[in-house]
């Protein structure tokens, strides 16, 4: 940004200095409050410092790319910034910028807008921030990594669930055998076991969700404290919850039925006799 923090001046001045906003982190670190007047300069030595009045304290938009760097930032009006940073030999109005952010009314137009701009102004590179799928973006890599972890976890959990249901069904092998002997047809018993499997899987998924929602708060609070940021690290959205249930319940049902089918095929007698 090129603006260095110089000194804090809390003094009444004749003319009201221009307003600035200070990031929460900077305000906390330097003990600043609204109404304080501070000097800002472009050099660390404090040359050409100018006074500004703190009109407010803001929470910086969390940026995962800047995780770990505590944002000691100031926001000021563009004319104030220009007059503060303009070199003595630069006439007003000839300043240049390297990049600007543009907010669109409808963010979905971003890609079309970027294409349009690039064709109209060759040499200008326009890129959508909401579609960071270009190669080398660390978050795209991270996303793939998460997907891989999720797949491995689900496969491992399925194997575990299958083993569990086999044990569960095997434990009830005698009961199932007795029911068969009494005269309950296979499909009735399968239906009952299926119902229980779905119930267990559903309750399990719900338990997992409650656990996730509980740890969501803990994880967010811990890392927000650790990195002094408002960044949200974990978010369980309704879609995530729905996906979780949509995977767990059919998986549980299939696992139970597979396990009990293997058992029922062996016939009533061998069940009851062991």
């Amino acid at each position: 940004m090129g603006v260095f923090w110089a000194a804090v001046v809390v003094a009444a001045q004749g003319q009201q200095p221009p307003d600035i906003l200070v990031s929460r982190q900077l305000a906390e670190a330097e003990g600043l409050g609204v109404g304080d007047v501070v000097d800002l300069a472009t050099s660390a030595a404090g040359a050409n410092a100018r006074p500004f009045r703190i009109a407010g304290i803001y929470e910086p938009t969390p940026d995962p790319m800047q995780l770990g760097q505590v944002p000691r930032e100031v926001r000021m009006h563009l004319p104030d910034l220009l007059s503060l940073t303009r070199g003595p030999d630069t006439p007003a109005g000839t300043e240049h910028v390297d990049s600007i952010n543009i907010a669109l009314t409808d963010p979905r137009d971003a890609d079309a807008f970027a294409r349009d701009l690039a064709s109209r102004m060759p040499g200008v590179s326009a890129r959508s921030t909401s579609n960071p799928s270009f190669d080398g973006n660390p978050f795209v890599v991270l996303e793939r990594f998460h997907l891989a972890i999720a797949i491995v976890t689900i496969v491992a959990a399925t194997v575990f669930l299958l083993a569990l249901t086999i044990m569960l069904v095997d434990e009830r092998r005698e009961t199932v055998g007795v029911l068969r002997l009494i005269g309950l047809p296979v499909h009735r018993i399968l239906g009952q076991i299926f119902f229980e499997g779905v119930l267990i899987a559903g309750v399990g998924a719900l338990f997992g969700l409650v656990l996730a929602l509980g740890s969501e708060r803990l994880i967010n609070e811990f890392f927000q404290w650790r990195y002094n940021t408002a960044l949200i690290f974990v978010r369980i959205t309704p879609e995530v919850a729905a996906t979780c249930v949509a995977i767990a319940v059919p998986l549980g049902a299939v696992a139970t039925v597979a396990a009990s089918w293997a058992l029922l095929r062996r016939g009533a007698l061998r069940l009851a006799r062991r």
Binding site: L181, G183, L184, P185, V186
Partner: peptide, 20 residues
């Protein structure tokens, strides 16, 4: 299997050594 199950249910009773 279903018909045999029904036959057991309605016409045959079983008693075993281990009660079940």
């Amino acid at each position: 299997d279903r018909e045999r199950s029904l036959l057991r249910l309605n016409h045959i009773g079983f008693v075993f050594q281990r009660f079940f």
